[in-house]
Computed example of a mutant assay.
Amino acid sequence: MWDGAVERSRARLAGALADGGLDRRVHLTSVVGRSVSLRRLLFDLIEEYGRHTGHADLLRESVDGRTGEDPPADWHPASTPSRPG
């Protein structure tokens, strides 16, 4: 599911960038009712994703006891090809 979501997200972003770039307006509005740019939307998504990643990392540490920022050397997500040696 994750890999599919990443693929769809990348395709939509590429399409939006090709159709006006980061300064184009999107269908969402700010709290005061003004439309926001794709740049602002991406910034907010990155910020929110980072916040939830941090929360998930705290939960993972409490489950498996492993701390630190890097995954094990032999781990890679299915959406990224494995790196040689």
Rank of each mutant, 00 (worst) to 15 (best):
M1L: 10
E61W: 13
L38F: 11
V63C: 14
L22Y: 14
R60C: 04
L28T: 10
V26R: 02
G20W: 01
L38I: 08
G4D: 08
V31T: 12
A56T: 03
A11I: 06
D74N: 10
E48I: 01
V36N: 05
V6L: 15
W2R: 13
T80G: 05
P81C: 12
R25F: 03
L17R: 08
P81D: 14
A73V: 14
L42Y: 00
A56Q: 05
P84A: 14
G85T: 15
R40C: 02
G20Y: 00
G68K: 10
V31R: 15
V26G: 03
F43C: 01
R34L: 07
R51P: 01
G85Q: 15
P84G: 14
E48R: 05
A18G: 15
W2M: 00
D19G: 09
D3V: 07
W75V: 13
L59N: 06
G15H: 03
G20T: 06
D3A: 14
L13H: 02
R40T: 09
H55N: 02
E47I: 04
S82R: 15
M1F: 05
L22I: 06
D3Q: 08
G68W: 07
R66I: 13
H76F: 13
T29L: 01
L42P: 00
A11M: 00
A78H: 09
P71N: 12
E48T: 03
